[in-house]
Design a protein around this nucleic acid. Structure first.
Length: 574
DNA sequence: TGTGTCTGCCC
DNA sequence: ATTCTGC
DNA sequence: GCAGAATGGGCAGACACA
């Protein structure tokens, strides 16, 4: 298939919002796709070259793509960046510079091949080589094709199409309608490879797809949690649940095939080599020939017997210096589910059964620890469990429907997380001052602002210091309003009383106060709140706006740095 | 050889 | 990660 | 309620460059 024919469909998809129409258009495209290309097209639609578990990253994003565009059309990268900032989309910027381009009949296969070549480039001169390869492709693009090509390395195709919609369209194209999606989805969840599902369906039909099964050593898509605001709502909706504490670490899927151990992240990246102690423990502690476990791994301090914050655990996600880090930051993995044992998939067994099997499979606690679980039917007990978890410095609890299967890849109300801040009351919110805004991308470009730079008042130095950016919690209308309000007090330069390492698109006078909710306060290399020459600053984890304070609230009435530091000291000790 | 920029991926 | 919105 | 698209902090690694 010619790439420009593919982008004709992309163009239609982009202009469509009805889900049924999206599926219709996409299935028309897929019908015309030969088996030889169907896998590649399935990946490209997602802005990828291969399934998640294959480490093939294009390695070009905003900055290098801008340079490639500049090179292709003989303009400076400043000009490209300027277009990007005003259009909110690098693809649109490329389209603009490509106005006079004719384009060739380059095929989808060739595009995929060159992008793969870009991904595989490494060593000295990588950046330049990649730019040259991408600008070479651009020279073969008409304006519309240039737009869609550019969006692929950015992983943002803006088509309104995700995995579930591709599955609907595959089913519609080959099996008549989307009712058979469930069958494709099942196979996808077990293999995590959309291209494989498509190719198998094309070449071997539905019966071929149905033969795809869970395999030890191949990652299964993780089941995810929905959220509910309170224990009462949980019991109301779920009646009886299994309740487990929620640890703050990495999700690790451990595969054991006799002496061979492999591990995958929540997003199916291979992490085996990072955690030697988990490899050893898996060999010793898993009482089965073959098994797949769902776990949460986090760093543990054997001296204090305490679990370390996420910021410490995340240092273990590395390629070099693994053995040394395994010594200084040893991990424990809390096992909370079992998906496979001794040649048999367990994902269709109810949770209660899986918990029994898990008990027999992981005995004594060691580096692997079976997560404590308890059946709960009343909101009072659940409240106590949640409070207990919080008082131990944990994130909260996860509750699960007892009879639910392991619905790989799903985020639904089979699994629900309850966190401290979800309950509504008793939240420690922070009053922040808006210091500037950042123009948005995509749909936010129309609102004038896509994120806010916010800070606190520092009494000691009588200045405003940054503590976070805020990109969520506002409705579309509120984004428009806050942009208007901000523009009335915009200033050309950073105000003298503002101390910031971050430069927003537009600085404003520090006057507007907002109430911000966050899950945690962290030490920060980039924010200036509480920062000194020798110590890092403080920042907010998962920040979101909850309200605009009234006009009576002055900037100097915002939360002070001193108060923030005190909150940092007290957190987790509740 | 040290530092800064950019990217991808954890949450 | 959290949140909002169209369907 | 699902699916998708906006957006957050912060870590390590790969390169570029002085």
């Amino acid at each position: 298939m010619k790439f420009k024919d593919l982008t004709k469909y992309f163009e239609k998809l982009e202009q469509t919002s009805s889900r049924l129409s999206l599926i219709e258009i996409l299935s028309e495209l897929l019908k015309k796709t030969p088996g030889e290309e169907i896998d590649k097209i399935s990946y490209l639609i997602q802005g990828r070259l291969a399934p998640f578990f294959v480490p093939l990253e294009i390695g070009m994003a905003e900055k290098t793509v801008a340079k490639a565009i500049a090179q292709a059309y003989g303009v400076t990268s400043d000009e490209v960046t300027r277009q990007f900032n005003s259009l909110g989309d690098m693809g649109l910027a490329a389209q603009k510079f490509a106005v006079k381009s004719k384009g060739t009949d380059i095929t989808v296969n060739e595009i995929h091949k060159t992008l793969t070549q870009i991904a595989k480039t490494n060593g000295e001169g990588t950046v330049k080589k990649r730019q040259k390869l991408l600008s070479g492709l651009l020279s073969k693009m008409d304006p519309i094709s240039a737009k869609h090509l550019i969006r692929i390395p950015l992983g943002n195709t803006r088509l309104g199409i995700g995995d579930p919609t591709v599955l609907d369209a595959l089913a519609t194209a080959k099996l008549g309608d989307k009712t058979k999606r469930k069958l494709l989805e099942g196979a996808y969840n077990k293999t995590s490879d959309l291209g494989l599902i498509a190719k198998t369906l094309w070449e071997k039909g539905l019966s071929g797809v149905e033969k795809l099964d869970v395999r030890v050593g191949s990652p299964i898509r993780s089941e995810l949690c929905e959220r509910l605001p309170s224990p009462e709502k949980v019991i109301e909706k779920m009646v009886e649940v299994d309740c487990q504490p929620k640890m703050d670490g990495f999700r690790i899927q451990i595969h054991k095939n006799k002496e061979e151990i492999r591990m995958f992240s929540r997003n199916l990246e291979e992490m085996t080599h990072m955690f030697p102690e988990l490899i050893d423990a898996s060999k010793k502690q898993i009482k089965a020939e073959t098994a797949i476990l769902d776990t949460e791994a986090l760093a543990y301090n054997p001296d204090s017997e305490e679990f370390l914050p996420f910021q410490e655990t995340t240092k273990r996600r590395r390629k070099h210096g693994i053995a040394e880090m395994a010594k200084t930051l040893p991990l424990k993995a809390f096992v909370f589910d079992i998906l496979y044992k001794n040649g048999k998939s367990l994902i269709d067994e109810p949770l209660s059964k899986r918990m029994e099997i898990l008990k027999e499979t992981i005995g004594e606690d060691g580096v692997l620890i079976r997560t404590k679980n308890q059946i709960v039917k009343d909101s009072k007990t659940l409240t106590l469990l949640l409070e207990d978890a919080i008082s131990k410095g944990l994130e909260g609890v996860v509750v699960k429907k007892l009879e639910s299967k392991y619905e790989a890849g799903a985020r639904n109300f089979n699994w629900v997380k309850l966190k401290r801040n979800s309950s509504g009351e008793l939240n420690d919110t922070i009053d922040c001052v808006i210091l500037g805004y950042i123009t948005g991308r995509g749909k936010r470009i129309a609102f004038g602002a896509g994120a806010l730079l916010v800070g606190l008042y520092d009494k000691k130095s009588d200045e405003f210091v940054t503590v976070s950016k805020i990109g969520t919690g506002l409705t579309d209308e509120e984004w428009r309003e806050v942009h208007k309000r901000a523009d009335r007090i915009r200033v050309e330069k950073r105000p003298a009383r503002v101390n910031s390492l971050i430069t927003p698109s537009v600085w404003i006078k520090p006057e507007i106060v907002i109430e911000v909710l966050a899950d945690e306060i962290t030490r920060s290399p980039i924010h200036t709140a509480g920062k000194s020459d020798s110590d890092p600053g403080y920042a907010l984890r998962f920040p979101r706006l909850v309200s605009f304070r009234g006009f009576d609230k002055k900037a100097e009435d915002s939360t002070t740095v001193e108060e923030l530091v005190e909150m940092y000291r007290l957190q987790g000790k509740k």
